[in-house]
Each structure stands twice: as structure tokens, then as C-alpha cells.
Amino acid sequence: MNIAVLVKLSVDTSYMRLDQNNRVLFSEIPLKVSDIDRNAVEEALRIKQQGLANKISSFSVLTWGSSDKRVSEAQNLLREILAMGVDESYLYVDPGFVYSHLYTAKILARMIRKAGDYSLILAGEASIDGYSSQVPCRVAEELGIPCVSYARRIEVKEGKVIVERDLEDSVEVVGVKLPAVVSVTREINTPRLPTLLQIRAAMRKPVNIIKASDIGLEPMKKIHEFVAEGVKIQRKGVIIEGKTVDEKIEKLLEALAKEGITLYRG
């Protein structure tokens, strides 16, 4: 059995950049491997360590720009997950890419189909920049296979995968036949940190660049447009100074009283 892992190269939300009009400059924000996708990679590695998988491949669609700089940034990030133990990476690069979950999922499905035979496709529950939880089940639908999300435990057994999934009001143990797509939560495991030796070894592993012509995709239409604006912090940012705790508490209560908030019930 082979495992495919969907790895998004998200923009790093801790380095937000804005233009003069307060609009988010996505193309100038550095990329990072979306946090929860590292958990998906870790889970794939654990399944392989149990002797249940032969090969692990990662699949990424470059969404935030396709300049040479972006491509090499992406390749470097993919080396991090290759160093964790992934065998090979596929990276889709296309100047004609039009932002949309629909196309992202179509491309991922085609790349996976073309790359080989994968029984289990792992993904993150949501990507850190968009947080939309759409792509995994869209890929499943495109491939015509089942989808189970929010997994916090996975067991592969006799052509099936048993998943403990985390819903709002319940925890469900569900079973689906393979092939299937499973998205994982942050709680499922703790992703390993590769050693220096592994990072060096990863330089020899392949990052395969895939282009539109390789998978025969029709031109994309603009179906989803958005403008993101930075949320302005409108907080007072007052630090209450004082020599003693008592003094600080008095001043805090005074400040709150001026805001119309009394903490003691009179």
C-alpha cells in the first residue's frame, strides 16, 4: 500500500504584510508547511513504520504565486518533510492557476492518479491560512472515494481504515474501505523533528515539478474572488503600573469602572 499526503505551502500567518490600503499582500508573505499537514505526514510515517505501507508521496499545489523565488521557497519547505521521512514530493506549479478549492482539488486528484496507486490519502483538517476544511473531501469526491475528517486516531486493518473522529458533541469510531481520504487533527500525534543527517539525506530525494500540460487541465475560470483586509488592533494597550500588587489591582478596578464595568456584585 502507498500513502499520499496532501501538504499545503501556506502563507505564514505570523508574518502578515499589508499594502497602503490595508490589504493583505499574500504574494509577499513567506511560506510555511501548514501546521496540521505535519501531523498528517507524521501519521503516514507511523503507518509505514508498522510495516503497513511501502511508499509515502506528498502532493502540493502552489497557491500563493509561481515565481522562481516562490518555487525554490516551496522546494526548500518540501525538503523538510522529505527529511521527516517522506519518500518523494510532487509540486504543481502553474502561472495560470486561479485561486479556488475546486481547482486545487481537481489538480491534486489528477496528480495523485498519475503518480501511482495510493490506498490512503492523508490531509490536515484545515490549512492555517485559509482554514476552510474543504480540500480533503473535495479530493475524495473527485476521486470517487470516501472521506473521513477530524481523525485523532487511525488504524489500517485488512483493506479498511478505522478512524476515531472528533465531532462537536461526540467522538465516533468509524470504518471505511480503502482507498479513502482521511483528514487529521493536531491532537493525533506530535510531528517528529528531522535530524541534521536526515536533512542532508533529503537533498537527494526527488521534488517533482508538475505543470498544467502534464495533467491536461482545462483553463481555469475566476469563480472565487476575495479581498482580505488586515484587522486593525483597536485596543488601548495600557499597562497598569504600580509598586505593589494592591496598587495595580486598585488601578485596574478604577480603569474598568470608567469603562462601566464593576467586578464586584453590589
Binding site: H101, L102, Q134, V135, C137, R138, S149, Y150, E168, H224
Partner: peptide
């Protein structure tokens, strides 16, 4: 809801539609 996010994503893909979450 979590179940509806799965269903919504799948339906959107089938009908070739965009979707937004939350």
C-alpha cells in the same frame, strides 16, 4: 458543523462550484 463541512465540500466539488466555510 463538521459533518456539514464534509458534505458541503463534496457537493460543491460534484457541481463544480466554489464554497466558503465559516
Amino acid at each position: 458543523t463538521r459533518i456539514n463541512k464534509e458534505a458541503g465540500a463534496r457537493v460543491a466539488q460534484t457541481i463544480g462550484a466554489p464554497a466558503i466555510t465559516e
